[in-house]
Design a protein around this nucleic acid. Sequence first.
DNA 1: CGTGTTATTGACCAACATCAAACTTAGTGG
DNA 2: CCACTAAGTTTGATGTTGGTCAATAACACG
Lengths: 271, 271
Amino acid sequence: MNRNHSLLGLVNKLAQDFDLSQVELDAVLALPFNIREYPANAEILREGDRPSQCCYLVEGFLSRHKYVREGTRQIMSFHFPGDIPDLHSIHLAHADHYLGTLTPTTVAFIGHAAIRDLTVEYPRLAACFWRETLIDAAIFREWIINIGRRQAPGRIAHLFCEQVVRMKQVGLADETGFPSFLTQTQIGDATGLSVVHVNRTLQQMRRDGIIGPGGDRVEILDWGKLVEVGGFDADYLHLRKDIRSPAEAHGNMNSTLRERRGRLGQSPGPG
Amino acid sequence: MNRNHSLLGLVNKLAQDFDLSQVELDAVLALPFNIREYPANAEILREGDRPSQCCYLVEGFLSRHKYVREGTRQIMSFHFPGDIPDLHSIHLAHADHYLGTLTPTTVAFIGHAAIRDLTVEYPRLAACFWRETLIDAAIFREWIINIGRRQAPGRIAHLFCEQVVRMKQVGLADETGFPSFLTQTQIGDATGLSVVHVNRTLQQMRRDGIIGPGGDRVEILDWGKLVEVGGFDADYLHLRKDIRSPAEAHGNMNSTLRERRGRLGQSPGPG
DNA sequence: CGTGTTATTGACCAACATCAAACTTAGTGG
DNA sequence: CCACTAAGTTTGATGTTGGTCAATAACACG
């Protein structure tokens, strides 16, 4: 098998979900695709587009976002190599948001028809692809919680934790840090904060000895504290045990802070 | 066919996605299920549970939520009859959030195995189910935007708009209002606001002549204004045209306010 | 070196949270 | 039918987080 095959990362990812047969793996690798490169800040897909292919991310970083008012946008996810950020387009006719590059990027476009055929012929592969979109959704849920119920330091810390864990899966990060591919404006767009406030919060986190001074890499000086501030629990990422264990051995990635609920079935109001 | 079959709503819903054959429809109706009733404020599923069945909502209202700090929670979705709020559990081993009732509720539990078998045998049904979870995800994305980038009146207005459109699909609402199944505390938990602020914002919306005084029903006095305040565009719900058109005829549900973006590929900061 | 983007700072202000209490409503048991 | 209770709503007072505006500094790149 070609070790430089562009879809190898996809196969690796899917193979983490289920024990796939060689036939199934080969079927994925046999998918026809077109490579395309983009500069930073390019748009791959726009709201309203009706794509006929999916975009597999080979290299670079992507975001999905939407514009809310004149000049305001909200980022709803980041994507790393191995992801198919618009896999949902197979069954949803039009895009309801933008997909854009954050850095220079290489993607492989795979036609919807080819993927549909694959899922019809191999139900287990269908399950794998489906599962990917379910994890995608789980991450959205966590972002709702992050933005809805945490304050600035928690939101940013949680975002950083998530990026460590997800990028670690593809060998781009560990608990000591990860490549810095975001501007402070983009961090704000993802966390629902203004740039100014992101800037001040990051400074506070540096003063608290949680992260390093920045630059090309986000240095994490105190992973435990980052997890604590962000109230982070990797459960929602639904990693497989074998992938998760090295992380657990290293820092404590999971269940460090399974937060406890208040009263039963009731969110307490005042009084 | 039994007109009182509990899964009729499910069939109707799936049949909106694709043109399904009678064989496929019958296969859905042949799914074995168990009916169960819950009082209000009951927990159907907890974080960490490993369910072996899915929960089809026959009657009542559900929410999915998570506890963030002692006493704080975030609701991430509401569910109406016809929904399968934990369909994702087929491919995600453990629940990463709670599923609870808001009102007295009737659900039908359908075993994972039965659904999996169905999806293997009928790829088009698999696509339908998959699609349901993709719309679920699209709603989460919209909530991220709602909470991240809108202020209190917009958040609440958007929530109400979404409820109108979704409940209308199952005949529970129209543009003049919908049954009020939420306390102000729950509205706050869904929008990331405090009860006090929800209360004041609702009062303002009443003074502005957008909604009525409340009670058993949320009266919408000015649908157009509600849509405007919430920046609502139903596109993300991916309704089928035939379902959507009566709404368009009535009020203008879609694309009323497709918001324009600011600068190209860049979220403007200050300066 | 200029030019554009990103990071940083200060001053000021608005939105929203928190706390605490009173009021309403609906349900329950006598 | 009425007191009693619990949940939900409303109000006032006060504080904080985080937004906005505007300017400056630090880089990166051709």
